[in-house]
Amino acid sequence: MEPNSFKNLPSQLTTNILSRLPLRSISISKCVCKPWLNLLQSDDFVKSKLKTPPALIRLMPDTNSTQCAIFEFKDEDEADAESHDLQLFPLADFDIPHGNSAAIYRARQTNGLLLLYSSVERHVYICNPITREYIELCCPADYISILNFGFGVSKLSGKYKVICIIVAGLGSGSTFVYTLGTGIWRRVEPGPASGRTFDFNAYVVCNGNLHWTVYDSAKVQICAFDLETECFGVLSPPAVVYGLAVDVKLIVWRDCLCLYYRLDDKVVIWQMKEYQVKESWTIKCEISIDYSNGFGVNRNMNVYPIKIFENVDDIASVMVYTPSLFSLKNFGGENVISF
């Protein structure tokens, strides 16, 4: 093979090869040549079907920054299946600089980009901790209100959008959308979401839509926001949720929308096998809770599905994270800050 033949490979083939590398090797590969750097930081690489292995990200608020640590998972073949523990290896540890972050809410990610929101500064941050870049967005209006944010990417247009719902206070019920690269917030009609109370900062992304549990009087429903059409819709949860279920939450498992809640002495998890088909709700599992064995007598406590990992201490906000070298500079017109 001639020395220059590899760099002349079609970009699709180069993407296929680089996508199979572990994150450390991909980070090194961007230093090989400028064409590889541009490819690895492009949206085409993010959209490639072959994804980099997931990692774990930990965020801890500090005085003037958010401490960020990223861990790689140990090879699953070497993990201890009986103990159900996954070994983690530190990959990066740094600070995301910004103002007072004492009230930074739990981050959410889309294709390796993080959404961070500080109620103290009332600013929204879109950050890629791998490329050490972030964008600062002001809130859509000078409301003294409680704001609920969501972040996702449209499956058709590929546009990244931030949605802001004013859930309480002045302007309650107003909804705004910010498309990264445009520099402006746009008001959209709430439609069927009007008058409903959103579960605060508890959305999930499934099938290209954002989903919240919402409350209409005492009735629990699921509200979906289509990132392509920018319209709200309402999905029906399992019928049993209208009864005595407590702490109703949404998760995504194996690309399916799931709902879980606490009912009496058990946690019940449902899965919607066919998206938007009410009849496809199926119980996946029921977990019994023994209140006499360490749970005390507080039956009003919240229950969340969690996973215990080794080598991670003092966790403030931890989630599975899909690393990406996608550069925020691809959003033309945004003020990208490097750190």
Results as ranks from 00 to 15, higher is better:
1 M>N: 09
2 E>T: 05
4 N>T: 14
4 N>V: 03
5 S>T: 00
5 S>A: 13
6 F>Q: 07
7 K>Q: 15
9 L>I: 03
11 S>E: 15
18 L>M: 10
19 S>K: 08
19 S>N: 04
20 R>M: 05
20 R>D: 07
22 P>M: 01
23 L>A: 13
24 R>G: 03
25 S>V: 12
34 K>W: 01
42 S>M: 07
43 D>G: 01
45 F>I: 02
46 V>Q: 02
47 K>Y: 06
48 S>W: 11
48 S>A: 12
49 K>Q: 10
50 L>P: 05
51 K>Y: 08
55 A>W: 04
60 M>W: 12
64 N>F: 10
65 S>H: 05
67 Q>I: 14
69 A>L: 11
70 I>A: 03
74 K>T: 13
76 E>D: 14
77 D>E: 15
81 A>E: 13
84 H>L: 06
87 Q>V: 10
88 L>T: 15
92 A>H: 12
95 D>V: 11
96 I>S: 12
99 G>S: 12
101 S>M: 07
102 A>N: 12
103 A>M: 12
104 I>K: 02
105 Y>D: 09
106 R>E: 11
107 A>P: 13
108 R>M: 11
109 Q>L: 08
111 N>C: 11
115 L>I: 08
116 L>F: 12
122 R>D: 13
123 H>C: 03
126 I>Y: 04
128 N>P: 07
131 T>C: 06
132 R>V: 00
134 Y>H: 15
136 E>T: 14
137 L>E: 02
138 C>W: 00
140 P>S: 08
142 D>W: 09
142 D>P: 02
145 S>H: 09
145 S>M: 01
146 I>H: 11
146 I>G: 11
147 L>K: 14
148 N>R: 03
149 F>E: 04
151 F>T: 01
155 K>S: 02
158 G>F: 03
160 Y>M: 06
167 V>H: 04
172 S>T: 05
173 G>R: 02
174 S>V: 04
175 T>R: 04
175 T>I: 13
183 G>K: 04
184 I>G: 01
187 R>Q: 14
196 R>G: 02
205 V>F: 08
208 G>E: 04
211 H>S: 05
212 W>D: 05
216 D>S: 10
218 A>S: 13
221 Q>C: 12
222 I>L: 09
225 F>S: 00
228 E>T: 00
241 V>M: 15
242 Y>R: 14
242 Y>T: 10
247 D>T: 10
248 V>S: 08
248 V>L: 09
249 K>Y: 12
250 L>E: 07
251 I>V: 11
260 Y>V: 07
263 L>N: 02
264 D>S: 08
264 D>V: 02
267 V>G: 01
273 K>L: 12
278 K>G: 05
279 E>N: 04
280 S>E: 06
284 K>G: 00
284 K>S: 08
285 C>I: 12
286 E>K: 05
289 I>M: 07
296 G>S: 02
297 V>W: 15
297 V>A: 15
299 R>C: 04
300 N>I: 09
300 N>T: 15
304 Y>E: 14
305 P>I: 15
305 P>L: 07
312 V>Q: 10
314 D>R: 14
315 I>H: 01
315 I>P: 01
323 P>G: 03
325 L>R: 03
327 S>K: 11
327 S>T: 10
333 G>P: 07
334 E>F: 07
335 N>D: 06
